[in-house]
Amino acid sequence: MTLYVVKRLLQAIPVFFGTTFLIYFMVFSMPGDPVLALFGDRTPNPAVLEAVREQYNLDQPFIVQYFMYIKDFLTGNMGVTFSGQTVNDVFARAFPVTLQLVTIAVVAEFLLAVGFGLLSGLRKGKFADHASLLMALVLNSIPPFVALFLAQYFIGIKLGWAPVTVGANVSWGSLLLPGLTIALTIYVVGMRLMRGSVIEAREGDYVRTAYAKGLTSKRVTPVHVARNSLIPVITNTAASFGALIAGTTVTEGIFNIPGIGKVLYDAILRGENATVVSFVTILTVMYIIVNILVDLLYAVLDPRIRYV
């Protein structure tokens, strides 16, 4: 087990360098001079320009800059934004907001997937199954940004049941509407996984044996049917957790949520390279870690899987 985790972390090292190098290279190749941009419309003194370049190591070759950046990143120094805040501070403020939003979305997605998947699987071919499949299909067919605008317009503006935008007012309550809307547009995958495994488990030999012991469906359904079917659903949900953290830009933009996605978007528009590279690097590392955790989760859920 320990050996497995070490092995996976070692595998993550080339992935880390590969992605950061690519990101750094792409940002480096973007048109425009960041030092000139600092001065806005004014024409700077060439001596000052030179001094600033030297201060930020911008006169060094690309590869040297890259390794200096990596060294700083690994020692916990991600640089400074144009407004003078450290990137560390910006991240520390934005990350909990996104984490809250994604937690709401993932928990809701999981409950929807398990609930409707179980209903569909147990009533396979009956009305409830068809209705649940149709609903999932319709919700999945709406592009997320359309769904978010619709939710914002009808529930936020017309009905007034939830805040229209979040802004500085971040709370579980204000994030509920965008979180649930995301969940509704993505739960179909988990629901289909659940439905498929329930149908398979229901006819399984061990389920028949469970009934033969004298158990009623009240116990067999959760303990033997649902429990076994959860394995693929949980791993799917955990994987979507990683994807969502990095993919909330649209949601945060529409609902004006000051999370990672919004900060990243603004930073790209403003050309704040330090912020962009650092955020993407952190997201990459988090994605790798979440994936390792998902694989370890398999072993917890299914005792047959052991990592040695």
């Binding site: 030999d205 061990y206 028949r208 044996t209 033969a212 429990r227 076994n228 859920l301 299914d302 005792p303």
Partner: peptide
């Protein structure tokens, strides 16, 4: 279980693996 007990055919698939 109580009145009629049951021993199935295939021991590989009749115990819940989890």
């Amino acid at each position: 279980g109580g009145v009629i007990g049951y021993v199935p055919q295939d021991p590989m698939s009749n115990l819940n693996p989890v």
